[in-house]
Design a protein around this nucleic acid. Sequence first.
DNA 1: AAACCATTCAACCGCCGAACG
DNA 2: ACGTTCGGCGGTTGAATGGTT
Length: 242
Amino acid sequence: METVPLGVRKGAWTEEEDKLLKKCIEKYGEGKWYQIPLRAGLNRCRKSCRLRWLNYLRPNINRGIFTADEVDLIIRLHKLLGNRWSLIAGRLPGRTSNDVKNYWNTHLQKKLISTREEPIPKTQKTIVPKVTRPQPRIFMKHQPLLEGKTVIADSIQPRDVNLPKPSPTPTPTNNEILWWDYKILGPEIDDMGINWSIDGSIFEEPILGIQSAGDRPLQQNQRDWSDTVIEDVDLWNLLGDD
DNA sequence: AAACCATTCAACCGCCGAACG
DNA sequence: ACGTTCGGCGGTTGAATGGTT
């Protein structure tokens, strides 16, 4: 069983703790969270360290107010994905899942309930999704993201997505996210400040299925998202209702 | 000025799946 | 097959802050 060391600090982080954590992660990198408290000399549990880093200390976090475009995107993605905050946040550059969740709970939930019978106000620039349903297709083997993965085409079964039950679905990498963003939202995601040339490789065509065959562990920041693919594919039906 | 109420959001909690021995 | 550890997730809490009376 997982145990939390006795006497670990809880509550708000001090500036000193932030410095130690930041320094440690800059030195050793993200990951190996169980080693971070020791390495950083922090009397905190690994989860607390991870959360502090991801939600507050990580560079490029956007702590500004949510723009109309972001709000619009959150609403649409929530309709699509349910309370899968990490997936939604993954499509909002600089936003954390905690931020998105908090924003939803404090701002949007009430708003949507109160306007349940009314359409979303059109005062904001509304992004109309151009829905392109994925066609059966396999990945090109040479894609860096697929190295070491076995591509299978016939093992994908439709799943019920009517219940957006939270599940620890692997989240896609930047390129994977961008690919789906492109397919879901079309070119307007450029308005969100997304840089399409992070490393220059964008998938050209949809996927039917990928399986992480366990040939090789996924690299840091490289996740198996075959589950996401399956669910997203099913979600096209929901999108079609718009 | 003080008391009360509402809102926000950082942080904790408990659970899950993957990996590993 | 089973138990343990780890990373990750969504739900929830509670302190801090702001607004109202």
